[in-house]
Design a protein around this nucleic acid. Sequence first.
DNA 1: CATCGAACCAACC
DNA 2: GGTTGGTTCGATG
Length: 117
Amino acid sequence: MIVLSLKGGRVTCRRATKREICEAVYILVSTIPVGRVTSYGNIARALGINPRLVAWCLQNNRDLIVIPCHRVVYSNGELGGYRELGARFKRSLLELEGVLFDFKGRVVRDFFVDIKI
DNA sequence: CATCGAACCAACC
DNA sequence: GGTTGGTTCGATG
């Protein structure tokens, strides 16, 4: 992720700090509607960063309430992780919101949304 | 469709 | 510099 700024009439660019990246990830994740999910890669592409980095930001997420990181799953519909609480709890949250799973335990395609900036 | 392996890239040590 | 991670993608049966 790149940050552009204007200094004395010149455009400069630098790599975003980890704090900036996390903030961007959190903002995007909090726009996922209730009862919907998106993938790590989807967020990563929107920001121009690596999917593993998205996961890393979410793992550091202290505000499980305000940032619905349980709505971010693998692109193939499998759950991915959820810190100590585990994927089982993550699935419970999603089911509570009305998300449906197939017989293999993967999120049904229809519940994926595209994140756009 | 399922499984497998490599590629991905920044953080962290 | 090597290891790790809440991934992804393509190749293969």
